[in-house]
C-alpha cells in the first residue's frame, strides 16, 4: 500500500515537474495578461502612479469621445469583413489544385510561398509595389494608359486601406488554401461517385456535398481572418503606420500607440478588452453559422 502510494506520489511529482515550465509560461503570458487587462481597464494607472479604481470611465471615454477608436474599430471590421473574399479565392484555387492536375504540388507551393515570410518584409515589398515612382502598380496602370498621373496609393484616404488589405490577402491566401485543401481531402470520394451515378450536376454536387462538408474548414479560415486583424500590426506599421490621418488605423495599432506611444497602459488595456471581446463574439457567431462543430484553433 505504501509502495503504491509512493509510486503515485512519484508519478505526480514527475507530471508536475514536466508540466510546470509550460504552465508557468502560459500563466505568465496568456492567463495573467487576460486578467490584468481586465483589471487595468477599470483602474487609472501608470508606471509612476498608484492604481485607483475608476469604474467604466475608460470605456465611457472610448465610446463617447474617442473618434480614433471608432475609426480603428470600423477599419478592423472592414478588414475582417473583406476576408471572405480571400477565402472564396482560396477555395477556388484549392478546388483547382485538389484535382488530378499535373504539377498541382508546384502550384500549391507557389501559392503558399508568401505565407511563411516575415510580415515586416512583406510590408516593405508592398509599399514598394504601391510606390508612385518605381512601383509595379503605377507602372502597369501608366504604361497601359489607364491613368496618366501617378497614383499615390498609400497616401490616399480612399485607397490606403484596400491596399493594405490586398497585401494581407497576398500573404494569407496560401494558408487559407492549405486549410481548405485539408478539408477537401477529408471529404469521402464515394459521396461524389454516388452523386455522379444519380446524375447530379456538378454545381449541385458543389453546393450539396462540398460546401456543407467544408464548413469546419471554412470556419477555421474565418477565425484565421479575424485573428489576422491582430497580426496585421506589422503590415500596417510598416506600410502606412496608420496613416494617412487614421485611414488605416486598426485596433491593434491603436493599442500599441496608446500603450507605448502615449504611455496610457490603462486605456490601452481597456482597448484590448474591447478587441478581445470582439474576437470572441465574432468567433462565436462564425461558429454558429458554420454549424457549431468548431475545429480547434491555430495560433498566429
Amino acid at each position: 500500500m505504501t509502495w503504491f502510494r509512493r509510486k503515485r506520489t512519484r508519478e505526480l511529482a514527475l507530471v508536475v515537474c514536466f508540466l510546470l515550465p509550460s504552465l508557468a509560461i502560459f500563466f505568465l503570458y496568456r492567463l495573467l495578461p487576460l486578467g490584468w487587462n481586465a483589471w487595468l481597464s477599470v483602474h487609472a494607472w501608470s508606471p509612476l502612479k498608484a492604481a485607483q479604481f475608476i469604474g467604466v470611465e475608460h470605456y465611457e471615454e472610448m465610446l463617447l469621445d474617442d473618434d480614433m477608436f471608432w475609426q480603428a474599430l470600423v477599419n478592423t471590421l472592414v478588414f475582417i469583413a473583406c476576408s471572405p473574399l480571400a477565402i472564396a479565392a482560396a477555395l477556388g484555387i484549392a478546388l483547382l489544385v485538389n484535382s488530378d492536375l499535373r504539377g498541382a504540388a508546384v502550384y500549391r507551393t507557389i501559392v503558399f510561398l508568401s505565407y511563411p515570410l516575415m510580415t515586416v518584409a512583406v510590408g516593405i515589398i508592398w509599399r514598394w509595389l504601391y510606390d508612385e515612382r518605381g512601383g509595379f502598380f503605377n507602372y502597369v496602370l501608366r504604361s497601359s494608359g489607364i491613368v496618366d498621373q501617378p497614383v499615390k496609393f498609400l497616401q490616399s484616404f480612399d485607397w490606403a486601406l484596400p491596399c493594405v488589405i490586398l497585401a494581407d490577402f497576398w500573404q494569407v491566401l496560401g494558408f487559407y488554401m492549405i486549410i481548405l485543401l485539408t478539408g477537401l481531402q477529408s471529404i469521402p470520394q464515394h459521396l461524389y461517385e454516388a452523386a455522379r451515378v444519380d446524375g447530379v450536376p456538378a454545381s449541385a454536387r458543389f453546393f450539396r456535398i462540398t460546401l456543407p462538408l467544408l464548413r469546419p474548414s471554412i470556419f477555421l479560415c474565418i477565425v484565421v481572418g479575424i485573428l489576422n486583424s491582430f497580426t496585421s500590426f506589422d503590415l500596417v506599421y510598416v506600410m502606412t503606420n496608420g496613416g494617412p490621418g487614421h485611414a488605416t488605423e486598426l485596433l491593434i495599432t491603436y493599442i500599441y500607440k496608446a500603450g507605448f506611444g502615449q504611455t496610457r497602459f490603462d486605456y490601452a488595456a481597456a482597448l484590448t478588452v474591447v478587441q478581445f471581446l470582439l474576437l470572441v463574439v465574432l468567433t462565436v457567431i462564425a461558429n454558429k453559422l458554420s454549424g457549431g462543430n468548431a475545429g480547434s484553433l491555430e495560433r498566429q
Binding site: 508519478e11 505526480l12 507530471v15 508540466l19 504552465l23 502560459f26 505568465l28 503570458y29 496568456r30 492567463l31 495573467l32 495578461p33 487576460l34 490584468w36 487587462n37 487595468l40 485573428l227 491582430f230 497580426t231 500590426f233 491593434i252 493599442i255 500599441y256 500603450g259 507605448f260 497602459f265 490601452a268 488595456a269 484590448t272 478587441q275 478581445f276 474576437l279 470572441v280 468567433t283 480547434s296 484553433l297 495560433r299 498566429q300
Partner: peptide
C-alpha cells in the same frame, strides 16, 4: 493523473488568446 482533463481544456482555451491581445500585461510581466 488527476486533473489531466482540466489541464487539457485549459491549454486548448489558452490557444484562443492571441498573443497580440496580451501585449500590455506581457510587457509589464
Amino acid at each position: 493523473f488527476p486533473g489531466r482533463r482540466w489541464i487539457v481544456v485549459l491549454l486548448l482555451s489558452c490557444m484562443l488568446i492571441p498573443f497580440q491581445a496580451t501585449i500590455i500585461p506581457a510587457y509589464l510581466v
